[in-house]
Amino acid sequence: MHKDNRIKLLFLLPAVLWVLCFTIFPLIYSVRLSFFNVKIGSPDEFIGLRNYVHLFQDQRARSSALITLIFVCCGVAIQMTLGMALALLFNRPLRLRGILRTVMTMPLFATPIAVGFLFFTIFYEEGGLINGLLHLNVPWLSNPYWALASITIVDIWQWTPFCFLIFLAVLQGIPAHYYEAATLETNKGWSVFRFITLPILQPTIILVLLLRITEAFKVFDIPFTLTTGGPGTATQVLTMYAYRVGMRFFNYGYSSAISVFLFILVMVVIMTLFKKIRQTYQ
């Protein structure tokens, strides 16, 4: 650490001010909007908690929240498990690993909106890639449960490589002598994993979990393009519902209430994981 110096503020303040200006202020504004009935062109009408009362009576909001939670839980759980399993399997000298890593890097930054459209053609039920190739007859997009599964599958396709690459990186960083000592005492792979690998991986697991959960809650592009929230409202996640209410139908107040609710939901989930992650960064 350098000695204390006024100049540190000069370094830090622009970024802090920027974030305050463009993140905190809009958030506060959003919270304010959520207490109003907003009509462009006429003054906002203060309506207290009525938007929130409506939120808890609104069947669509409830079902959207449920859909979002299912999407996040299933998607993230499967990605993490798959990524972990693959990382453990390939954590050994293997000729093709370089190529595998390269290929696995490709989905990470693939434009989500394009991915949504692409999978629209892949899930096409009458001769699309999957049904056509495997001679299946799965109602990928026309059945409510399958449609939810479909957007989850896209998320899994895009983000399993992310989990895989991170876990692999950490596994490869574990010095060999950790294992050598262990193998002398016990020969079972499971115990090695349980008592050596897992404790080392634990902070990373929590970190990846955290990152994936926050991102998964924000999902918008994929259902927006792949299913447009349908069929019915089967894949209308909270972000899409907020967008629909606010940007399409100009009910800014209610839309803000939905967004604030979503924000609180994410925060609650994050807070429960928060203490562990703090250690990683301090």
Partner: peptide, 22 residues
């Protein structure tokens, strides 16, 4: 005013009917 919004509400419920949820 709001024809679009009325129709979209109808549309979502129709879609729910077509998949047998309503």
């Amino acid at each position: 005013n709001g024809a679009e919004e009325y129709w979209r509400a109808l549309d979502q419920n129709l879609s729910e009917t077509m998949i047998g949820r309503l």
